[in-house]
Design a protein around this nucleic acid. Structure first.
Lengths: 114, 114
DNA sequence: CTGTATCCCTTAAGATACTG
DNA sequence: CAGTATCTTAAGGGATACAG
């Protein structure tokens, strides 16, 4: 996350919100189900550490993309869900996700960089 | 650019190709005109250094997103243009760009992170 | 279960000077 | 004009241990 704005174009702004290694994956996982708990999310988003997960979740919550609901029980339960704003972003992300899906093989097979 | 694949989803793959601070901006500038020279590109993409520009251009060329045409003249002339593959990506990027455009104010005005 | 707190490493990115 | 070559800094990310 760089210093915010001014942005050269909408894409610039969008990538400032959803850029980085994890946010789009988290949003994707969250968009498929009504709610997900912290532990479920950790399993859904393969390879993420607890530190990165909570860090990204907090930023996405601050950005209004997701909602965090705390249930004061023992053991504690916290559920995350996508907001309307977040949903509008996942909708805008769809074509790009489809494109990536279609060309995934080509993308994965390009030569490694030095 | 991280190690390539396997990706968890199409979005992951797409962001591997167009992620980072500059690629989408370069692609955007390039998509609007038939061709752009190195120097023109440097002026279009505000704030980019020559090092970053050439580095990103080389990667995008290797990825098949853009084409590099060299004219052996004095002074030297090099023209960059978007390939069909690159065009398919900019098309997929449109909705996200529009979304960013619509919400740019909100995105720019969120609190700075520590 | 849901997080915090550190420490460390790699990579992305910026500055500057120079070359065919 | 169109790049290269270094050096340096900033940010992102990962490992691990611990706490409410």
């Amino acid at each position: 996350m760089t210093a915010h704005g001014p942005y050269s174009c909408g894409l610039d702004a969008a990538l400032d919100i959803v850029g980085g290694k994890w946010k789009s994956l988290i949003l994707w996982a969250l968009a498929e189900k009504p709610t997900l708990r912290f532990g479920e999310l950790r399993r859904e988003v393969a390879g993420i550490t607890e530190k990165m997960l909570i860090q990204q979740l907090r930023q996405m919550e601050a950005d209004g993309l997701i909602h965090r609901e705390v249930y004061r029980e023992v053991p504690p339960r916290v559920e995350y869900s996508v907001t309307d704003f977040g949903r509008s972003l996942t909708d805008a992300l769809m074509p790009l996700g489809d494109w990536g899906e279609r060309h995934m093989k080509r993308i994965a097979n390009r030569e490694a960089r030095l």
